[in-house]
Simulated assay, not measured.
Amino acid sequence: MILHIRAAADWPAEEIHPLDGEAFVHCSDPGTVHLPANRLFAGRTDLLLLAVDPARLGVALRWEPGSPPIPGGPWFPHVYGPIPASAVVAVHAFPPGPDGLFELPEALAQR
């Protein structure tokens, strides 16, 4: 399973497309999703975490360094093409904690 952070207002959708100027849709895994969440979405309370089944993508999935790359840092799953809604197998609320930081939702941590 890979994870994609999405604004609640932008879901549901037929497909998730790469951001303008990007070649891929940014995703994470359960162990790294807090990194982009805290760096890019600090203070946001309107987020969802979409669980995506890579076997249902129908497009290339590549594990690559983050952007910007961190020497020796984690790699992230990048989906090269749109993610079809049928690949999304679960949707979770993704609010920050009381300290404003994001953590993997408990429902996903127990898997």
Rank of each mutant, 00 (worst) to 15 (best):
P69R: 15
A8P: 15
G81I: 12
E22S: 15
D99F: 12
E14W: 07
R6N: 12
I70W: 09
L35H: 05
S67H: 05
A23D: 00
G21K: 08
L49H: 02
A37M: 08
I83P: 03
P74T: 13
M1E: 03
G73E: 05
S28L: 00
A85W: 00
R111A: 11
P54T: 11
G72Y: 06
L108A: 06
T32M: 11
P69W: 13
A60H: 13
L19A: 11
E64A: 14
A51Y: 03
A85I: 00
Y80N: 07
D10M: 09
V59Q: 10
F41W: 14
F41P: 07
G21D: 09
W75D: 01
I16Q: 01
A7Y: 07
P54C: 12
P69L: 13
L57K: 03
E103R: 13
F94T: 04
V89S: 12
G31Q: 05
P36K: 07
I2G: 02
D29M: 15
G72M: 06
L101P: 11
V33K: 06
F24H: 07
T45A: 09
N38S: 10
L50D: 02
V52A: 03
D20N: 15
I16C: 03
A107G: 11
A8F: 14
E103Y: 09
N38L: 10
R6F: 08
A9G: 13
E106C: 01
V91S: 07
V79H: 01
L50G: 03
A37H: 06
V33P: 06
Y80S: 07
L35S: 04
A90W: 13
H92E: 02
G58S: 09
A109R: 13
H78T: 09
I2W: 02
T32V: 12
V91P: 05
P84Q: 02
G73L: 05
E106G: 02
G43T: 09
I2N: 03
H34Q: 03
P74G: 12
L3S: 02
R39N: 14
M1L: 04
T45C: 09
C27P: 04
W63A: 14
D29H: 15
P105A: 11
E14Y: 06
A60Q: 15
F76N: 00
V52D: 00
R44M: 11
L57W: 02
Y80H: 10
G21L: 07
V89W: 10
P82V: 15
P54Y: 11
R39S: 14
V25L: 14
D53A: 06
S86H: 02
Q110M: 05
C27W: 03
F76H: 00
L3W: 02
D99Q: 13
R62Q: 08
A42H: 05
I83V: 10
L61G: 06
S67V: 06
A55C: 10
R62M: 07
L57G: 04
P77A: 10
P105D: 11
A37G: 08
W63V: 14
P105H: 10
C27R: 04
G66I: 01
P12C: 08
H26N: 09
R56K: 15
S28A: 01
V79D: 00
V88Q: 07
P98S: 01
A55G: 12
E103K: 11
L104W: 07
W75F: 01
V52Q: 01
E106R: 03
P68F: 15
Q110T: 07
I16P: 00
W11A: 08
R62V: 08
H78R: 11
M1V: 04
L57Q: 04
P18N: 10
